[in-house]
């Protein structure tokens, strides 16, 4: 009996586990420290999650398509440094710096997409290599220097990170807007369906006349586009950036995506779930800070979350928490 009870709980957790865990966590923390659900705090968390969130939207496409993108962290550093540098370049200025940065970042995504989609190389290796290569590229570009906007009061560049409309911070609006757009792209369009098919069973997709390589290629372009957007927010918010601003973000992004329930095996996940995953991660980190733990603890916590989420994913597929055979 205990076994069946465990199973039905397991079944509910498998389907709605993320929401259940989220609610339990919020209620628990709110009881313990009412400041946690203070509107200011909640808004603060959402705002600080926006950059991670925007990146996670793109990676969701990549992961549903059956691949990984570990290069997003160093790609974020690249885009932030590049946009700041071009902003300071009199030949560009903000109006040209932004599209130029987007174009360059998309090129990086295209390299990933070409190698993984068309040449069918392993995405883990390609994007891990790109993580390192882009880092080198960023340092070469910046000469190892941090980038700053010298005359901050004379540019409208700060609007993406610091502005607000209708009382809502612009980064949050960008996150919500992009989530809605990409959510519809994934759930409602033929392209979205093809991403699921390619990630669920690439061979069957090919046999159904779906251009697998092109679909994978585009998922990496989407990922790069999201990174460029996140890089813009990041650069705009701080009006300056270090070469390492995105370091380690790839894992947090992946944690949010997996936490949202996208399977690392590809073929499942949704944008809405990823948004929930992003918020959970944000609130957990916020809760830990409110609990008085060191900021650095969150790196360990991120790892624990990844492991738990991956374990749950696999266990759901196997039908039990531990199994000697698949």
């Amino acid at each position: 009996m205990a076994d069946t009870a465990m199973k039905s709980i397991g079944g509910i957790l498998a389907r709605q586990g993320i929401l259940v865990a989220f609610i339990l966590f919020m209620v628990g923390f709110a009881l313990w420290n009412p400041r946690f659900i203070d509107p200011d705090n909640i808004f603060g968390v959402i705002r600080s999650s926006a950059i991670l969130g925007v990146m996670a939207l793109g990676v969701t496409f990549v992961v549903i398509g059956g691949n990984l993108d570990l290069s997003v962290g160093s790609m974020l550093s690249f885009s932030a440094i590049v946009v700041l540098d071009l902003h300071e370049n009199p030949a560009f200025g903000p109006a040209l710096a932004i599209p130029a940065m987007f174009a360059l970042t998309l090129c990086l995504g295209a390299i990933n997409g070409f190698l993984i989609g068309y040449l069918r190389l392993n995405s883990l290796i390609v994007t891990l290599g790109m993580l390192s290569a882009i880092h080198g590229l960023t340092l070469t570009w910046s000469g190892g220097q941090n980038m700053d906007i010298a005359n901050q009061s004379e540019t409208w560049f700060g609007v993406f990170g610091r502005g607000s409309a209708l009382g809502i911070p612009i980064p949050v609006l960008i996150f919500i807007g992009l989530a809605a757009l990409l959510g519809i792209l994934l759930a409602k369009t033929p392209f979205g369906r093809k991403v699921y098919a390619v990630g669920g069973n690439g061979t069957a997709a090919t046999f159904s006349g779906i251009p697998r390589a092109r679909v994978v290629f585009i998922t990496y372009l989407i990922s790069a586009f999201c990174v460029a957007t996140a890089g813009l927010i990041q650069a705009s918010r701080t009006m300056g950036a270090q070469n390492t601003v995105g370091q380690g973000l790839e894992l947090e992004v992946l944690a949010a995506v997996i936490l949202g329930g996208a399977s690392l095996l590809g073929g499942s996940g949704t944008i809405f779930k990823t948004v929930i995953g992003v918020l959970i991660l944000g609130f957990i980190q916020n809760g830990l800070l409110l609990a008085g733990l060191e900021f650095y603890v969150q790196f360990v916590v991120t790892w624990i979350i990844i492991i738990l989420a991956v374990w749950l994913d696999i266990a759901t597929k196997r039908g039990k928490l531990w199994s000697p055979i698949a």
């Binding site: 369906r193 699921y196 098919a197 669920g200 069957a204 997709a205 046999f207 073929g267």
Partner: peptide, 15 residues
């Protein structure tokens, strides 16, 4: 080669 097993019946058929 024939099916995306994790997808539903309709989506497989219209792929």
């Amino acid at each position: 080669q024939g099916l995306v097993l994790g997808m539903n019946c309709r989506d497989n058929m219209t792929l």
